[in-house]
Design a protein around this nucleic acid. Structure first.
Length: 914
DNA sequence: CAGCTGGAAATAGGC
DNA sequence: TTGCCTATTTCCAGC
């Protein structure tokens, strides 16, 4: 079981569009193996030699991986990528790609592979159908009437965050300023924070935190806010609804396939910048190809000096916009010519002008360094509104706080660690529009931090000091929730806040190197659910003890997680490439054994036991009843869409689902220069509108020359470091030795739990933080593949044990024995009732049917991507596409299955007794 | 008393 | 259009 699949695929997303409640689903993967013998991701007893395991229902055979594949793999876009360099989702991307590049020579094991999806925390934004549409950078953020504002107005507008951290108005541009200092008394916001000009002009606050209800509407006339009880914001043009978001076709007049705020369609200025000039430009939307661009305007403030550079010509990446001086179409970016005074002397931090944009994907490690989250945050953190007091810093599962450490750093100077709130969806990581990091101060906070606003995103910076072993306890970062209406009202903002409540803590370091090239590393935490409700209602799977089994099912799978209930149901489903649900089956949950943190599930039989290829399915956990889920939903083909897509629907249908969520939008546009700058090893057709976002997810280490000039001047300025993740390997996660594993699963029966997806991996880490003795950094980082042996040099520089832990994979037991339980089952054993499951026949889509199917607008881009991917894939390896099976977890308000396919006769479905 | 928490009412939007 | 349901946002009380 060493292959990996991208559960964040097209069909899943399409299906999601048909199933609103699936926004709260956390999906996981499972793979069915056919009865016939074939490869199965094998044991990897030899850490240095990946194997494939021939698996039949009764026997297994292991043999080495074909060398041919390795060679082939070298041609992949990840040829220079070391999977271990990438963290979290990025690794999954590599795995996905690799998985799909399996050469034909290696037959795929028809097996079931259970893999926790990155959708594990899929929720809200990430699960929205057009989530991939928001991959474009967010160089500017606008508000109605103030289109030139380069910030998220609520953040700038609302100082109502906790006084402990106060609003980030003043702090943002004056890190060392008192959090409560009046804008009028401190640095002049008019100078330091142009966006503040609008807000504060005529209404300077004496204390940003004194009036939770002080609003933009009051101050800046944006009209989005009013004294409490505040009326819901209304948009002159009509507020987007969640449904509209899910289905852009519902939006009158919205035809753009790129509703991203900064897509070319919506912002020609931005779009024009996506040229081959360089990655920076592409990402930032700054079209400058002018080396040595000189700031056109210098603004002297009380504490800092900013260079104002026209967006279209500057090479600056971060900044505030000068609202007053520039029209909307020509926003300015403010680049501090003088680095703000750090809290720590000699703090090694990169000048904003040279730092990569927050939207940029960065690796978590290079050969030399690794930025690692030693302790992950809790999966839930109730964010506070501006009208509320702070809800404190994000905590760790153990009760402490997240810990981040930079490995491999030998310098003597502290390094600035940046923290911001990023998206938790499957698209490229970027600052979250609806959440901001919130600086926490107080006697309980041990970590100094200061704030700044980088291109509209609040960023905390704390020092990583050698004396602390370059480790920082993140006890100063809370999460502020911005009102959806305010954000959605921004011009160009296409994301909706509804059900978009998952975030990640993103950590970044910029390591100054003597050679003149600095290294930027970034690592994102596990997803954090920020809503109040979900903390108690959403079931989450943190661990699954098996990821594949025979198509015959019947094996017991133990899910470890949270918020399971007696009503918890585990649903297996399969979708077609176009998102149509092909099969759905509720697994039998052993109510007697199950606990709030553990579910014992009997894997249902796959509907087609005669498959000869492994099939991936989804499964998810749902608490409570579930509404009817349409098995197939078709829509009339939108001519406009079809025309603009440039290919027929049938083409879409055959596309690989992989990387659907990774539409890089503008970033990977052939004109944006990303590929040339970051993934030169891979060539794409310039005619294709998009490229596979995996290549940005798999971004190489960013090495750049100090000094803003070069950043946008040429593609070569930003170049991949020589240390790129190994592309040859699918990767999986070894969750630790038996002694380190959690719970019964870690007992002798399952000494080595292998988790296959980043999602699962992430969750595991959250749990491991409590149970695994530190340091266990590589439990998370040990990513290797079934198809390829770990390579020297790919290990974590700071964790030599990484390699050693690679191959303790064990075959999944066909039957998992009941483990000793510390908790009581939900209830006493009761006669299970047979669930009525209509709709026995798996959905089969004929070609004609497929032609009638309309892929939602937001999915077309990915279709393009997949198309490209498929071309590349075939070109590189000729690997045949796979069928994926994902799994999900649904929220408590999930739908019921009125069209639930009946289980095979030999495998009746059971449900919890009410 | 400030900050933090948990809970829940009020509100808005979706169906 | 209405009612129900869910998600969001605001408010309150306790620690």
């Amino acid at each position: 079981m060493t292959t990996f699949y991208d559960e964040r695929d097209l069909e899943e997303d399409l299906s999601r569009a048909n199933c609103p409640d699936e926004d709260l689903q956390f999906e996981y993967l499972f793979e069915y193996e056919p009865p016939c013998s074939d490869f199965s991701g094998g044991d990897q007893d030899d850490p240095g030699l990946a194997t494939h395991k021939v698996l039949s229902p009764e026997s297994e055979q292991v043999f080495p991986l074909d060398e041919h594949y390795r060679i082939k793999s070298c041609n992949s876009p990840y040829s220079n990528l070391n999977p271990e360099v990438l963290s979290g989702y990025e690794n999954q991307e590599a795995r996905n790609y690799l998985d799909n590049t399996r050469p034909p020579g290696l037959a795929l094991s028809p097996r079931i592979e259970i893999t926790p999806s990155r959708e594990h925390y899929s929720h809200g934004r990430d699960s929205l159908p057009n989530q991939h549409l928001n991959l474009s950078p967010r160089p500017t953020l606008t508000v109605p009437g103030h289109e030139s504002l380069a910030y998220r107005e609520p953040q700038c507008l609302s100082p109502a965050s906790s006084n402990s951290s106060t609003s980030w108005h003043s702090e943002s541009y004056s890190p060392w300023a008192s959090p409560c200092v009046s804008p009028s008394s401190g640095p002049n916001p008019a100078d330091l924070c142009p966006r503040m000009q609008n807000i504060h002009t005529g209404s300077p606050r004496t204390s940003p935190g004194t009036s939770p209800h002080t609003s933009l509407g009051e101050d800046g006339g944006l009209g989005a806010r009013s004294p409490s009880p505040r009326p819901r914001s209304t948009s002159p043009q009509g507020k987007r609804t969640y449904e509209m978001y899910r289905n852009p076709g519902l939006i009158p007049g919205q035809r753009s396939r790129s509703p991203s705020p900064h897509s070319g369609q919506e912002n020609p200025n931005m779009g024009a910048h996506f040229t081959h000039a360089g990655l920076v430009e592409g990402v930032n939307g700054f079209g400058s190809s002018q080396p040595g661009m000189v700031p056109t305007k210098i603004v002297k403030t009380s504490n800092q000096l900013y260079a104002l550079i026209p967006e279209n010509h500057g090479d600056g990446n971060y900044c505030d916009q000068d609202i007053k001086t520039k029209p909307a179409a020509e926003p300015f970016y403010v680049i501090p010519s003088i680095w703000p005074k750090p809290l720590v002397p000699n703090l090694c931090s990169l000048p904003l002008a040279t730092a990569p944009p927050l939207e940029w994907p960065l690796p978590s490690r290079t050969d030399q360094y690794e930025l690692h989250i030693e302790v992950q945050p809790k999966p839930h953190h109730r964010a506070h509104y501006e009208t509320e007091g702070s809800r404190g810093a994000v905590k760790a599962p153990t009760g402490g706080h997240p810990v981040v450490q930079l490995h491999g750093y030998r310098g003597k100077d502290p390094v600035g660690l940046q923290i911001f709130i990023g998206t938790a969806d499957d698209r490229i990581l970027k600052p979250h529009a609806f959440y901001q990091v919130h600086r926490i101060t107080g006697k309980t906070v041990t970590t100094n931090s200061y704030e700044r606003i980088i291109n509209g995103t609040k960023v905390l910076e704390i020092p990583l000091e050698p004396k602390n072993n370059m480790k920082a306890i993140i006890d100063c970062a809370g999460i502020l929730k911005l009102r959806n209406a305010d954000i959605e009202l921004r011009k160009g903002e296409t994301d909706v806040g509804r059900k978009n409540t998952r975030v990640r803590l993103v950590f970044r370091v910029h390591i100054f190197q003597p050679g003149g090239q600095d290294v930027c590393l970034q690592v994102a935490s596990h997803p954090i659910e920020c809503s109040q409700r979900s903390a108690h209602e959403l079931p989450m799977v943190e661990k699954q003890d098996m990821d594949s089994c025979s198509v015959l099912g019947g094996q017991q799978m133990i899910l470890t997680g949270q918020n399971f209930s007696s009503d918890s149901k585990v649903i297996f489903l399969e979708k077609s490439h176009n998102g149509q649900q092909l099969w759905e089956m509720e697994a039998t949950v052993d109510k007697d054994k199950s606990q709030p943190s553990m579910l014992f599930v009997e894997v249902p039989s796959y509907h087609d036991t005669s498959i000869c290829q492994p099939v991936k399915v989804n499964f998810y956990v749902i608490n409570g009843k579930r509404k009817r889920t349409p098995a197939i939903k078709t829509e009339p083909l939108d001519d406009y869409e079809a025309q603009n897509m440039g290919f027929g629907i049938p083409q879409i249908l055959g596309l690989s689902p992989h990387s659907y969520y990774h539409n890089p939008r503008g970033i990977l546009h052939p004109d944006n220069g990303l590929m040339s700058g970051m993934a030169s090893c891979q060539r794409f057709s310039p005619n294709l509108p998009n490229q596979d976002a995996r290549f940005q997810q798999q971004s190489p280490a960013i090495v750049y020359s100090r000094g803003g000039k070069s950043l946008s001047s040429s593609p070569g300025t930003w170049h991949a470091s020589g240390v790129m993740p190994d592309p040859h390997r699918s990767v999986l996660v070894h969750t630790g030795s038996p002694a380190q594993s959690v719970g019964p699963i870690s007992s002798g029966q399952h000494p080595s739990i292998i988790q296959f997806s980043p999602t699962n991996h992430q969750l595991l880490r959250a749990g491991d933080a409590e149970t695994l003795p530190p340091p266990q950094p590589d439990n998370q980082q040990i990513l290797f593949c079934d198809d390829y042996p770990p390579q020297a040099g790919s290990h974590s520089p700071g964790h030599p044990q990484a390699q050693a832990a690679v191959t303790h994979q064990q075959p999944c037991p066909t039957v998992i024995q009941q483990q000793q339980q510390q908790q009581q089952p939900f209830g006493q054993k009761e006669p299970q009732k047979v669930r009525v499951s209509p709709g026995t026949q798996p959905m089969e889509v004929t070609e004609d049917e497929q032609r009638r199917v309309t892929v939602k607008e937001e999915n077309l881009d990915q279709a393009y991507l997949d198309d490209v991917n498929e071309i590349i894939r075939k070109d590189l390896t000729g690997v045949q596409a796979r069928v994926h099976i994902n799994r999900k977890i649904i929220g408590a308000d999930g739908d019921s299955f009125e069209q639930f396919p009946p289980a095979p006769r030999h495998q009746q479905m059971y449900s919890w007794e009410a």
